[in-house]
Amino acid sequence: MTDIGDVRAAEKRISDRIRRTPVMRADRHVWFKLELTQHAGSFKTRGMFNQIIAAATRGVLPSAGIVAASGGNAGLAAAYAARELGVPAEVYVPSTAPAIKVEKLRKLGASVVQTGNEYAEAYLAAVEWAQASGAYFCHAYDDPDMVAGNGTLGLELLSQLPDGFDTVLVAVGGGGLIAGLIAALRDSADVVAVEPATSAALHAALRTGAPVDVPVSGVAADSLGARRAGEIAFDLARDAGISALLVDDKAIVDARRRLWDDYRLVVEHGTAAAYAALTSGAYVPAPSERVVVLLCGANTDPSDLV
């Protein structure tokens, strides 16, 4: 099971490749971790760098490069990390992926294949291509190196808020981010999962006792639309007793709008889900509870905010 030792090893591996993203005080007891300012616009760049560098260190990174499947952000992270490391990258995305993400993938130099209507279909196509081409498959969330890389975000928070914090609210799709945060923070703070009610893979897994397929839809499906939670995330969440909250599309849209109106922060709908837990009342902090809302990605079209 991925633990803080793995996260610390990842931090040493990728510290000179990633941005140390800022923390912003939003209210007396609420902070935003602005991971939306990370390279390629999301936290996933941490995990992708760690996956690729770790594979190279182990001698298993082929000349064919990497292949990844993504609703958008993991692909952007893979493309960026591969470019910086001089590695060829091919990214499979569903046909429903936002045009802004597809355009960015191509600008980063990746070969892009659009197939299927959701992440699960793009994933299957990417796995088939990896087997046929010999390229190294970089999983978007259910990989120990991906999880450990993502967990470096938690170590940053501990150093940036030295007086401590009680809770971190995290938007969840496949679970690679929350898994990393559990590994990094389980002895320091509570980690709370927030999912769209229409794409609730971790919630379903915790309820049934194992990862299961769930229907996927809604405004945040492009980034949080994993049909099934990752095994790593499920195991860590269950072991740590993590709770998974649900928010509806209306709350997500409203939270995204509030982040723009009140703080001039432009985030994607999936990212806004974490803040929606607060604004909708799905999560009600105790008096004086110190809460960090993780704003994990900004790959969105901002035209509907103005």
Rank of each mutant, 00 (worst) to 15 (best):
E156D: 13
V102R: 10
E90P: 03
G109C: 12
T208V: 15
P98F: 07
V87Y: 01
K101M: 11
F165C: 08
Y136Q: 06
L105I: 10
V172P: 00
V127Q: 13
P196H: 04
P162F: 09
P144M: 09
V113R: 13
A97S: 13
E195Q: 14
V113L: 07
L185H: 02
A201M: 05
A120E: 14
A200W: 00
V191F: 04
G174Y: 01
A140M: 08
F165R: 05
A120T: 10
Q131F: 11
T198I: 04
G109E: 04
T96Q: 11
V112I: 10
A99W: 11
Y123P: 00
E90T: 15
V102C: 12
Y141V: 04
Q160M: 12
L181T: 07
P94N: 11
Y92P: 07
G176V: 07
P211R: 00
L185I: 08
G134Y: 09
L158Y: 04
A201H: 01
S159Q: 15
G173Q: 06
L158E: 09
P98V: 08
E121R: 02
Y141D: 06
A148R: 00
A148Q: 06
S188R: 14
E103A: 15
A148H: 00
L105K: 03
R207L: 14
S159T: 15
A193C: 11
F165T: 04
A197K: 13
A201P: 01
L108Y: 12
F137D: 03
R186F: 08
G209D: 11
Y141L: 06
V147M: 02
Y141M: 07
M146H: 02
G149F: 00
P98C: 09
P88T: 06
I100V: 15
G151N: 00
V112P: 02
L108M: 12
Q160D: 13
K107C: 11
S199P: 09
Y141H: 12
D187C: 01
E90K: 15
A125F: 05
F137S: 05
D190F: 02
E121C: 07
G176L: 06
A126T: 06
G109F: 10
G149W: 01
G149A: 05
C138M: 08
V87M: 09
V147N: 01
H139P: 06
P211M: 07
A132V: 08
T198F: 02
D143G: 03
L108D: 01
L153M: 15
Q131G: 14
E90M: 15
V192L: 11
L153S: 11
A183K: 05
A89Q: 09
V168I: 13
K101R: 13
Q131R: 15
W129C: 09
A126N: 04
L124T: 14
L157E: 01
V102A: 06
A205H: 05
L153H: 02
S199E: 10
D190H: 13
L158I: 13
N150D: 12
A130Y: 02
E195A: 05
G86L: 10
V168F: 03
S199G: 10
L157H: 00
M146I: 13
A126S: 12
V194D: 01
G174K: 03
L124A: 14
V91S: 07
E195N: 08
A171Y: 04
S133N: 12
A110R: 01
V170T: 11
T208C: 10
G149R: 00
A135T: 11
L202K: 00
W129N: 13
T208K: 14
V170D: 06
L108H: 03
Y92Q: 08
V172Y: 06
I178A: 07
R207V: 12
